[in-house]
Write a protein that binds this DNA or RNA. Structure first.
Lengths: 245, 245
DNA sequence: AGACGCCTTTGATTTTGATCAAGTTGGCGA
DNA sequence: TCGCCAACTTGATCAAAATCAAAGGCGTCT
């Protein structure tokens, strides 16, 4: 854990930005970056920051979406369920991702916090108004959608063609490369997902996930403490085991 | 490959629309619908219509994309391969879909015609110029990306959690609902994919696909002629077998 | 027509991961 | 400190799909 250096305040560059936004990650990697200071004020006036505890549902499959949000910190699971209860996690979102499916009223999936997560939520009509006023914002949302599409297709290859061992290694690689919002790859981290979640993400059972993690541990690809804390001595080795080029 | 020359047609009804575009589907469901007549002329001046025979690669994984295209008719497979050759089809595109990943130079996947396919191709710089001039065009591309994202996530559920039987039924349902560009669902059609392609789409082997098709035939869910022509007596029944709500 | 080649089907066997069934661990409240 | 509970691990067995191995159709080239 590191302490963020936070004492420069009244300089020219930050003086005309809403206080809540000044330290916000979403302004850099996220979706607010393209807004003018006026638009940022506009948006922040209607936005609410919320903390969500693990397991809390943000939006349910089939419900009406009336808000969007930026993820400030934490991890959100996007999942779908079959009528008989079989479940598949179809995406993970990390800070500073934008959450929400623009231009549709009904959500086709469930969004749920995997760990303690902070979000900054906006009502849909404000976003829609800003989109029509600021073409850069739609471009940004478009980029986010394309990024998610690329990730979804990568994951389809994993789901359809990889072995259990490769799937688990691929999952660990995803976490290692996304858990740190500063965009570096971490070689030591806490898993944001339980074994059950990992199974739902990989299209496997809990038992198979557990066995494969044990196998990776015995082969020294990873080290595990408390079943949640993972150390990766060689990311290259992990990638190789995961069948990632 | 054939190239069609476009001429400005002078008749009363379509006098201000390029001849090639006048009868084109992409103007309705597709991406050209938001353009003004002037922009359509601009684009059509730089566009080329091409026919692509089955198996011909339109763009390869890792290659540089320098063009986009609308699918006029036919079916295009989007696929990814692992280093050792395992392959996964990550999407199918039908008329009048827009092909191409905006805002990136290098293609992360291979696009290949599944059957005889006609496309209308545009150079990337023309599209990029039009995007900056016509905000409606980016919106249209954004919608297309979101549609593909929804489809990809639906398919992830199929890949991760469905049985072989359900996968094959889900595939047949997709074809039944997309093969007809007029957007109706067909209960009789030719499969645009070989057994090998179907296997790559479903994350199965050829043999398993064949056995499941035989099983569906024996259970009267479908009828098959020449191994390619399929009749679906009851679409509801097919959906049910495919685990589609 | 006959033979070649490709795609598809069918059959026998193996393998991977699922299922069923105990245990183990760690956190937490009484 | 104990006991409980949930999450995780481990083991034994089972089943679905993969793999290995032949055929069977069907179009086409000569």
């Amino acid at each position: 854990m590191q302490i963020v250096n936070e004492h420069r305040r009244k300089d020219i560059h930050n003086s005309d930005i809403p206080t809540v936004c000044a330290a916000c990650e979403a302004r850099h990697g996220g979706v607010c970056g393209t807004l003018t200071p006026d638009q940022l004020f506009d948006l922040s006036r209607h936005s609410t920051r919320r903390s969500i505890e693990p397991g809390r549902e943000v939006i349910g499959q089939g419900e009406t979406t009336d808000s969007y949000a930026n993820i400030i910190s934490g991890v959100v699971k996007l999942s779908k369920v079959l009528a008989d209860g079989r479940q598949q996690i179809v995406g993970l979102q990390f800070a500073p991702d934008f959450m929400g499916r623009p231009f549709t009223r009904e959500s086709a999936l469930t969004a749920e916090a995997a760990v303690d997560t902070d979000i900054c939520a906006f009502p849909r009509n404000v976003i829609e108004r800003l989109v029509s006023e600021a073409p850069g914002l739609e471009h940004r949302l478009h980029e986010q959608a394309l990024k998610e599409l690329d990730e979804a297709r990568d994951w389809m290859l994993t789901l359809g063609r990889k072995t259990a061992q490769e799937k688990v290694a691929s999952f660990l690689y995803i976490i290692a490369t996304h858990i740190d919002p500063e965009q570096g790859t971490a070689n030591e981290f806490d898993l944001p997902l339980s074994r059950a979640d990992i199974a739902d993400y990989l299209g496997l059972t809990i038992e198979t996930v557990s066995r494969q993690i044990t196998k990776l541990r015995k082969e020294n690809v990873i080290r595990i403490e408390n079943s949640r804390h993972v150390t990766v001595p060689s990311l290259d080795r992990l990638m190789h085991v995961g069948g990632i080029d």
